[in-house]
Design a binder for these strands. Structure first.
Lengths: 210, 210, 210, 210
DNA sequence: GTATAAACGAGACGGTACGTCAGGTCTTTCT
DNA sequence: AGAAAGACCTGACGTACCGTCTCGTTTATAC
């Protein structure tokens, strides 16, 4: 089938060498700061060859990340949806604090400036995760654990959004107890439910922050 | 009082010129791609002078952003906390789709690679917003609209996390109706509350996504 | 034969362009004041390319000088050694007052501060001249025109030293008649030879200059 | 003469400080490489003040050199002119190999590019030496030790030219024995005087060096 | 087998930007 | 008024990477 390419075929060894070397280069000097030039120098592969295969250093990093991360974040199915998410989010947080996770953070950040990278990130990383998440949500709805109303993607946003927000901008990293509280709050809702009235009945409006 | 600086004082005109020019430069060529060199050329200010005042182009952009944004995103106090947040988040989303917002997105992305920038972002942008948000949450708790349990910062994460997540990685931008659904879901909780039982009792486990 | 250089070969056109342009640049703005930046601008050759080939502007100037001067100062063999030197020194003086000569003067001056340049000057300019000079001296000794005693290099120092000294620090430039007198004096010696006695026998000691 | 005004003016202190500091700065980092900026930093004197007094760093160096060198190279009057010159030239060579001498070499080199510096060098250094030299020559002529014919300045060129030539461009430094041979050769002349004929009578012309 | 087509290494090349240094000038404040 | 502190503009420095290119070599498939 497919078009049989004529000419010399690409050296598979080079691919591995480059991906490996790029990872360790990134770990030692920082994932930003990885340049085609340095990769070429470190691996002994000619710059021309690199450019023939990847458009820029971030593309290499993305490939390297995915190659090493196929099995990362495995879906752990627990007894309830809530437990599944709890488990997954804890793994997520843990993963992001590892070297690999830091790498992904850089890639995500860079993606906002590099359209092609963003596309790759979405297609090869975020969407698979989302697909997986959706199936859990669907399971939760089916099992009666979750409300039927909201869009599954919204549910995922609600669950993972805060975690990412914390990872990106939080003062300190998310902890297991943070996630427990998060899930508990999100599941039960922000709204006050019991009949108890607030101590002060008058709706005290806060002072508008200047 | 205060330290009396000796020597020639910094030219205030330069500050304005540079901040203005940097903004419009960024808008025309893209906020990444703004370089010290170009700012110097466009403004006619010497490169050395720029470096004396800012360590790099992102620092200028941050200053420029804040200078223009003091009054942006003013807190609009509505009748209820829920309405206040809804209003604020809609403004937020709208703001982020403007030119200024795109700028902030770049800054936030870049901040993950530039520690000093991240510090500035946190101290000068995120924290003020957070302080404002906390006061609304406090008001909501006091008025009985919100649960007393969760940490105010967690509440803010839950509300804004999904929005940011969507802004950063969503397929399409957040809409007003998205925010309405988000708030509604978050306020009432993900958990199923009515007596209704799930259709299928057998806990159908989803197919693990390969 | 020889080492086959791998990779793209250096563009010969660039070499010529740069050497030519550098010469005329130097003539128009002064040989000091020639900078890599200006050469790059004038020639349209990238700065990086210049630095790949020459460490600094003086190295370009040295190359440019030699390229244009291969045939300059050709040895003119006259009937006697004395005439040969006379002819050569006159040519030398004349050469040094030309644009090219002014250039060499700058190079010689700069060489006292730039070791690499001094090495180049010695190896590629002074030594060839010296070799040529030595052969004339040898001829003079063989023909009986010159004493056998002194070291040939000393003879060259004695002949050319005064000329250079005059070129470097003399109030006015050396003239043909200066050279005639110089050679005549140097050949016959400073010492008084005839039987004539000094007018005043008492050894009048000069007043020590304060 | 008169008693100095009590209370040395501040100006004078600065002058000394700067001259001293410049010298030692030059000795530590190299006399080229001395900049106004560095002098200002080292001495604590404001750049403005430096520029008010000297047009550039070389001018400071020249002043510093002369201030420290008033008594250097003192004229040593010996029994004969020949001995006087011999002594003086040996001192000269020795002086030039000292730190101060290296400094002067740099100044002389730089002077070829800096007219004002060249003027200063000539007026304040070379001419005094020349005046002194002329008086010795005059003494030698008067005493009958030297020929009457040649211009005294030519004699000085002949004597000092070779030494300077050697100092500037010689492979190795001039030694005492070099100077002895130089003087001996110069005094007796290059021309062969005895009746002895060259071994080979045919005027063997040297092979023209290619 | 021998084209032919592509991969590959090496390195030149034109660019853009970097961040720094030094030169001079000018302003401000202090003494 | 003179000195210090320091802002400012100018010009050049030498380097890092970029992405493209030109070569000559190597290796595969296709005729």
């Amino acid at each position: 089938m497919g078009p049989r390419p004529s000419g010399r075929s690409r050296d598979a060894v080079i691919t591995c060498t480059v991906l490996d070397a790029t990872l360790s280069l990134g770990e030692s000097i920082g994932f930003d700061r990885v340049t085609m030039e340095k990769v070429a120098e470190v691996t002994g592969v000619a710059k021309t060859t690199l450019y023939r295969r990847w458009p820029n250093a971030w593309a290499i990093l993305m490939d390297a990340f995915l190659a090493e991360t196929r099995e990362m974040a495995p879906l752990v199915q627990k007894r309830t949806v809530r437990e599944s998410f709890s488990e997954d989010m804890k793994l997520l947080v843990q993963a992001y604090s590892s070297g690999r996770g830091q790498m992904l953070l850089r890639i995500l950040a860079r993606a906002h400036v590099d359209t092609a990278l963003m596309d790759a990130v979405k297609k090869r990383w975020l969407e698979p995760l989302q697909v997986r998440g959706r199936s859990i949500v669907a399971w939760g709805i089916a099992s009666g654990e979750l409300q039927e109303g909201p869009d599954p993607d919204l549910v995922l946003d609600i669950l993972y959004g805060p975690v990412y927000h914390r990872l990106f901008f939080g003062a300190e990293a998310a902890t297991a107890s943070y996630i427990d509280k998060l899930i508990s709050t999100v599941f039960s809702g922000l709204k006050r439910r019991d009949g108890a009235q607030p101590k002060a009945t008058q709706s005290r409006r806060p002072r508008a922050p200047k």
